Amino acid sequence: MASCAFLAPAAALFPLQAQAQRLFPQKVERGSITFTGTHDVVLNDKRERLAPGAIVRTERNTIALTGSLRGKTFTANYLRDPAHLVREVWLLTPAEAERPLRPRLGVTATPDTPADPLIYRN
């Protein structure tokens, strides 16, 4: 119990975004998404369809029901399935939206400059 009392103030010193950074697959795309129906979205000004079983993660990385997002627009990272339907969506925080989608071209990881830890290969 004493250790919990010691660690609680330390956790409060760091903002929530700094405590947990999300990892995105290397093949994600970024765009503006508006939820128009349970399975329908407008992605980068083009009507699209969500794949059956599509997963939408909120800024806090919780799963959102698409019906609760109807009429709302977000900046998001997304992945498509082989049928070109949107299968995964990550709604971005303002800090994540400012971050470049991919590392700069021509920059490779060396022992002195490790690869970007916020991107994993899929």
Rank of each mutant, 00 (worst) to 15 (best):
F74W: 01
G71V: 11
A64D: 04
V28W: 06
D112G: 10
K27S: 15
K27Q: 12
Y78H: 03
T75E: 12
L92N: 00
G71H: 11
P15M: 08
M1Y: 08
L118G: 11
F14A: 13
V41Q: 00
R57K: 15
D112I: 08
D116F: 06
S32G: 07
V42N: 01
T93D: 01
C4G: 08
N122R: 00
A54H: 07
T73Q: 02
E48S: 14
T66M: 08
E48V: 03
A54E: 05
F74S: 01
E98G: 14
L16N: 09
E88L: 07
T113C: 07
S32F: 03
R87T: 14
A54C: 13
R47F: 08
P94W: 05
F6G: 05
F6H: 10
P111E: 14
V56L: 04
R80D: 06
F74M: 01
E96D: 03
A2T: 14
I119P: 02
P100T: 02
P103K: 03
R22Y: 07
G31P: 13
S3Q: 09
L16P: 05
S3H: 14
V42Y: 00
P111G: 10
G67E: 15
P114S: 13
C4T: 04
P94G: 09
V28G: 05
R47M: 12
T66D: 05
E88C: 02
G71N: 07
G67Q: 14
S68L: 09
E29T: 00
T58Q: 04
Y120I: 09
V41S: 01
A10Q: 14
R57Q: 10
E98F: 09
V86T: 15
T93H: 06
E29S: 01
Y120V: 13
I119D: 04
A115W: 11
E48P: 01
G71C: 10
R121K: 15
A20D: 10
L79H: 01
P114K: 14
R57M: 09
L79I: 04
T108W: 12
A2V: 07
S68R: 12
M1N: 11
A95E: 15
I33K: 00
L101Q: 13
E48Y: 09
G67I: 09
P103V: 01
L101E: 11
E59G: 09
L79S: 02
R102L: 11
R22I: 04
L85T: 04
I33F: 00
N61A: 15
R99V: 13
A64M: 11
T75R: 07
T75N: 05
R60A: 15
S32R: 09
E59P: 06
T75M: 06
A54N: 06
D81V: 03
Y78G: 04
H39D: 15
G53K: 08
I33Q: 00
L91C: 06
N122P: 07
W90Y: 13
P103R: 00
A97G: 00
